[in-house]
């Protein structure tokens, strides 16, 4: 049962907007630009690119995670869902 909640937490902290360090309102072009920038930084092994921040702590960022995040945000329906969670977690009440 604890495994279930671990998986839920993993899904929430891997929200593509957190992984890409973008605002939920970021346009599609900015999403692509940011993904390319992060992939280049990860390829250059920049320490700052290896971690990303969420409201629940820092986590490891990998090229695979960046690629899957940008793929998620290319689908409008999935983007809508990620945006709803990210906006709810980050924007003031």
């Amino acid at each position: 049962m604890t495994d279930d909640v671990e998986n839920l937490l993993r899904a929430h902290v891997a929200n593509p907007f957190f992984v890409l360090a973008l605002s939920p309102a970021a346009p599609a072009a900015e999403v692509e630009r940011q993904a390319q920038r992060l992939l280049a930084e990860l390829a250059a092994e920049l320490a700052a690119a290896r971690r990303y921040r969420t409201p629940f702590g820092e986590h490891e960022r990998t090229p695979e995670l960046v690629r899957s995040s940008v793929a998620e945000l290319r689908d409008p329906a999935r983007r809508l869902r990620h945006e709803w969670w990210a906006r709810g977690m980050t924007e003031p009440v």
Partner: peptide
């Protein structure tokens, strides 16, 4: 004040 989304994930 914390949003309901944040409270939700904090409990998880």
């Amino acid at each position: 004040p914390v949003s309901v989304h944040a409270r939700h994930v904090a409990l998880i």
